[in-house]
């Protein structure tokens, strides 16, 4: 398992986007989520973020996500970019 070294951020607060901030933490994966579609997609967004952490084998991270109705592909792109900016080595994952 890998850790990130610093804070990384990606995305905006525009509609249909999601702003992701990743911060190093002691252990585990903590997700703080705000979303305008929380009742409909809150669980799906969490699952997407968790899946990326698993694929990238990252632990010891706190993820703040402010979602304005982003699609899954957008969420993936923003999370991966935030990880990259936080110094994680991004692995290619073949779907």
């Amino acid at each position: 398992m890998a850790k990130i070294e610093k804070t990384g951020q990606a995305g905006t607060l525009e509609s249909s986007d999601i702003m992701i901030t990743v911060v190093p933490d002691k252990s585990g994966i903590q997700i703080e989520l705000e979303s305008i579609v929380m009742p409909q997609y809150g669980d799906a967004i969490r699952a997407t973020i968790e899946k990326i952490m698993k694929e990238q084998q990252i632990e010891g991270i706190r993820i703040k996500a402010i979602d304005k109705g982003a699609l899954d592909c957008t969420i993936r792109a923003r999370v991966l970019t935030a990880l990259d900016r936080a110094g994680a080595e991004i692995r290619e994952v073949l779907a």
């Binding site: 579609v37 009742p39 409909q40 997609y41 669980d43 799906a44 699609l71 899954d72």
Partner: peptide
């Protein structure tokens, strides 16, 4: 297909 199936609100 684009957005996923939304959960029904309660």
């Amino acid at each position: 297909k684009m957005a996923g199936v939304p959960k029904q609100i309660e």
